[in-house]
């Protein structure tokens, strides 16, 4: 447990009478690629919101490298290295692709209380941004307005933004959602390359991708983790098959 990168302790969240996150406890060691699967409405996105600090938790704790970040607001968690992407694409459509990523670099290095000098011309910000774009395969679109990208390219851009923040932990909420087969192959190859380098918590419906990428998989149903294990263990787990894969137990 000494090398736990991200720990969730008894996390809960309710909306009125509806319990969306129900006593979630999970420890993810440094460098692990952990996937969370679960049916629609299981509370996966809500859990990411809680871990990232977008919404407050009802009770429980989030620990990053053993440090309690439960009370830290979203932007400050990002600065601690806890970075997320969104299920519904969230970019700055009026900015160039490069500027979208350069802003993430700007948040990470130096101060943004600088009132003179053209930010868009700062090589110190643009060079790391171009490197991140290169990594996701979007380098040739750097000068395009982000709003004009295809859906798949926007997903790539969101990953580039997240990478430019140099995360210790990357929380990915269905990065493959809505991408075509070619685009998702590019993204899966990218995730494969990131595996081991960064601790990753991935939410994904694409089972093939999940079982190929993840070191361990947790299954979330009605806000509870009903099983955690290697992909093989989870696939064979009876409860999972009943609750999630919808199979009859033979």
């Amino acid at each position: 447990m000494a090398d736990a990168m991200l720990s969730l302790r008894h996390l809960c969240k309710s909306y009125g009478a509806l319990t969306v996150t129900d006593d979630v406890t999970l420890t993810i060691p440094k460098g692990e690629f952990h996937a969370i699967i679960g049916p629609n409405g299981a509370g996966k996105t809500t859990l990411i919101h809680q871990i990232s600090g977008l919404i407050p938790s009802g009770s429980g704790h989030v620990l990053l490298e053993g440090e309690d970040v439960t009370r830290l607001p979203l932007p400050l968690r990002v600065r601690q290295g806890l970075v997320r992407s969104f299920q519904i694409t969230s970019i700055l459509p009026g900015f160039s692709v490069l500027e979208n990523v350069a802003l993430a670099v700007q948040a990470r290095i130096g101060t943004s209380f600088r009132f003179f000098g053209r930010a868009a011309a700062e090589e110190r910000l643009n060079a790391p941004a171009r490197a991140a774009l290169d990594e996701v395969g979007l380098a040739d679109r750097a000068e395009t307005r982000a709003g004009l990208l295809s859906h798949g390219e926007k997903r790539q851009l969101e990953l580039a933004i997240a990478l430019a923040a140099e995360p210790k932990v990357l929380l990915l909420d269905e990065p493959l959602a809505g991408t075509g087969p070619e685009e998702s192959a590019v993204l899966i190859a990218l995730l494969q390359r990131l595996k081991g380098r960064i601790t990753i918590l991935l939410i994904e419906h694409d089972m093939e991708a999940v079982f190929a990428l993840a070191d361990r998989v947790s299954v979330l149903v009605y806000g509870r983790i009903i099983a955690t294990g290697t992909p093989a263990e989870v696939r064979d787990n009876v409860d999972v098959r009943v609750a999630y894969l919808g199979e009859e137990v033979t």
Binding site: P75, V78, R79, P93, F95, I161
Partner: peptide
């Protein structure tokens, strides 16, 4: 343009 994105990039707006 997108306050949520800016917060998720790490800016306390």
């Amino acid at each position: 343009e997108n306050p949520q994105r800016m917060a998720a990039i790490g800016f306390p707006l």
